[in-house]
Design a protein around this nucleic acid. Structure first.
Lengths: 146, 146
DNA sequence: CTTGTTCGGTTAACACGTTAATCAATATCG
DNA sequence: CGATATTGATTAACGTGTTAACCGAACAAG
């Protein structure tokens, strides 16, 4: 048997709740995107580029919450599928600039409505108030320096 | 250029905030556990077994928020390292029962203090009120059926 | 009993997460 | 200028995430 009397229940822990929330929010999206032929992460990269314009990999990684090694592979796939194009920065030849290609624009245009519908449904079911409270609290959490 | 005027900023989206929060909360733990020789997921499985006692893989997967294929591999590793043991249920021979072995207990005993210290620090820095609000909101979110 | 079905768990295949090592381009400083 | 350190990005190696296919044990009619 286990002495669990002074151990906080894992089921009520913040890490577990965050994992469940991530699945809750992203699970439905994944199926939509699978039909479109992209992963959740590839989709996130495309959206970041759509919002901020052409960017270097390091900035993309920051915005899309990906580590550079992951992003390297993701960009290779996105390039194979012709959703993005790369350019070398001629001033600093270490740096690249990634841009959304036409196929990428088309992909986003086709899937954005459904994606936004899901986001709205989520927000409505949770309620505007709680939705923004949640965003605020997560933002506070992310600003802590532990 | 990109027409981002009617696209909600990815940086302020719930999915992104959740990803950042997960990294914020679990990042520091990972380094502690790496020294101990286990991954974050392996640790989660051990904690679940510690709290609820011996369990079958399907239940573990639910509690630790893991899919069965992942859990299968994780249990193989935990068994190799002698942190857990398996038993076949003789009533229903499809089912297994996983228990924490002595090495597993020792591992938890050694690392739990640091883990709890981190959890407390997090809670204190965020504030009790906001911490429980956050848990409540995540719980509400996880109860929605989308 | 026995065929078809469901259930618990595993395997396979591919993509991502994570850390460490590597490499070329550039910046730094003696 | 030249040796050294730093930076942007990639590669390597291992573990996990995800879906689909699979397998043996139990179950459910017929």
């Amino acid at each position: 048997m286990t002495d669990a009397t002074n151990i906080p229940a894992t089921s009520k822990s913040l890490p577990i709740a965050l994992l469940r929330a991530r699945e809750k929010v992203m699970g439905p999206i994944r199926h939509m995107l699978a039909d479109a032929g992209v992963t959740e992460q590839q989709w996130r990269v495309l959206r970041v580029l759509m919002e901020e314009g052409p960017l270097d990999p390091t900035t993309i990684a920051d915005r899309a919450v990906l580590l550079l090694p992951s992003l390297t592979r993701i960009l290779q796939k996105l390039e194979e599928k012709e959703y993005v194009t790369r350019t070398r920065d001629e001033v600093d030849r270490r740096r690249q600039v990634i841009s959304v290609a036409e196929k990428g624009h088309a992909l986003i245009a086709k899937n954005m409505p459904e994606s936004q519908r899901h986001a709205r449904a989520l927000r409505e079911q949770l309620g505007d108030e709680r939705y923004s409270s949640l965003l605020d609290l997560l933002d506070d959490l992310n600003k802590l320096d532990l």
